[in-house]
Design a protein around this nucleic acid. Structure first.
Lengths: 128, 128
DNA sequence: GCCGATCGCCTACATCTGTAGTCCGAGCGG
DNA sequence: CCGCTCGGACTACAGATGTAGGCGATCGGC
């Protein structure tokens, strides 16, 4: 019974993150959050996206009185896992290590972050 | 004069990887490589994609006699960097460490790979 | 109680994507 | 020589995406 996480497009991700960041939320609240992080968000656009996400089964809502309270229908973890999978396949042909190596080599990591990652790696070694 | 790497879609990535894996190459060769890794690739589809990639400026070609020899017009590194950036922003809101942590936690890494990553991290520490 | 601000629902529409098919000119096998 | 084949150019077409606008019911004020 694995619900296949629906495919979430770029802009839809922004909406999802707005919802995950605090729910339930009305469409207006969601639109406000989006506009806050990027003023070019038009409320109408937000609503359309919300509608599509509901259709796709990524969002659900409860009717409270006469307003709609939206909430995620899939967890952020599930979506992250799915998107990561697809990114990994697409860009690195599924090869995990080169991907991690790329990020470690080319992006900015503070020394503390490096240390934390080492810890995570160490934990992982023990686990197995 | 940074050429902005054109946006490469999912299937287009497969084509690009086929080209990066050995060029210059004729459309036929590219199609063959694709079909080899996934038999459901139709040659016509490959050609269409190649055409689009040329339009987008991701591929270029030289006319040799009467056949076309295609080659990448953008490097794999550039594309990887662009795609990674966008993935990172989209899914993790730009936060690198959580992203790396996610992959290390949830995906399969052989002990050897873990070791290599530790080495990369260590190198990185020294570098700075 | 009427008026404008909201809100959800439906509609619009240009692009981009995925997946091929058609057409035509140029060699290739007979 | 001649039809068959292969490659490139153009065409097709449905579904996803980004970005909104219009319509009708409602609710909060005045």
């Amino acid at each position: 019974m694995k619900k296949p996480v629906p495919r979430i497009s770029d802009t839809e991700w922004e909406v999802m993150r707005a919802v995950w960041s605090g729910h339930p939320a009305t469409a207006g609240e969601i639109a406000d959050r989006l506009a806050q992080s990027d003023p070019s968000w038009h409320p109408k656009t937000a609503r359309t996206l919300i509608g599509r996400l509901v259709e796709k089964g990524a969002l659900a809502y409860d009717v409270e009185g006469r307003s709609f309270l939206y909430r995620p229908a899939v967890t952020e973890q599930e979506c992250i896992a799915a998107a990561s999978e697809s990114f990994l396949d697409r860009v690195f042909g599924g090869a995990l290590k080169p991907m991690l190596a790329h990020f470690v080599e080319h992006e900015d990591l503070s020394p503390e972050e490096v240390k934390e990652l080492e810890k995570i790696l160490a934990r992982r070694k023990n686990r197995r």
